[in-house]
Computed example of a mutant assay.
Amino acid sequence: MMVDEAIQSSAEPFAHFTMNDDERYEFHLAAWLHDCGKITSPEHVVDKAVKLETIYNRIHEIRTRFEVLHRDTEIRCLKRQLAGESSRQAETDRDLEQEELQEAFRAVANANTGGEFMSEDDIEHIRQIGQRTWVRHFSDRLGLSGDERQVLTDTPEQALPATEPLIADKPSHLRSWGEHKPPVTKDDPRNRWGFDMTLPEHAVNQGELHNLTVAKGTLTPEERFRINDHIVQTICMLDALPLPDRLANVPHLAGTHHERMDGQGYPCRLNADNMGIPERIMAVADIFEALTAVDRPYKEGKTLTESLAIMQRMVNDGHIDRAVFQLFVRSGIYRRYAEQHLRPEQIDTVNEERFLT
Rank of each mutant, 00 (worst) to 15 (best):
L243N: 06
H16W: 08
I277T: 05
D21M: 12
L78Y: 10
E179G: 01
R192Y: 03
E99F: 09
Q89N: 11
K216L: 10
E120Y: 11
G143C: 05
R141L: 08
H230L: 06
L209N: 07
K299W: 02
G84D: 09
E53W: 05
A290G: 11
V3A: 04
T220G: 04
E339F: 06
S139E: 09
M282S: 14
V315N: 04
F138C: 10
A248S: 15
P182S: 01
E43P: 01
D196K: 12
C268K: 15
A248N: 11
L144I: 06
K299M: 11
S9V: 08
E157K: 09
Y266Q: 09
G84Q: 09
D35C: 04
Q128Y: 05
R280A: 07
Q98A: 01
T198E: 13
T256P: 02
T54Y: 00
G143K: 09
F328T: 11
Q312K: 15
I55F: 06
Q206V: 02
G276S: 09
Q128A: 13
L356Y: 03
T292N: 00
V329Q: 04
E306D: 14
R65Q: 11
V135N: 04
H28T: 13
M261K: 06
L29N: 06
W32H: 13
R226S: 12
S119C: 04
V184I: 10
V232G: 05
L78V: 11
G301I: 08
R296C: 05
F17N: 11
R190K: 12
E222P: 00
T113Q: 15
P165M: 04
A107G: 04
I347H: 05
R127K: 15
A159E: 14
L152V: 05
Y25I: 11
D169W: 04
A162D: 13
S119W: 02
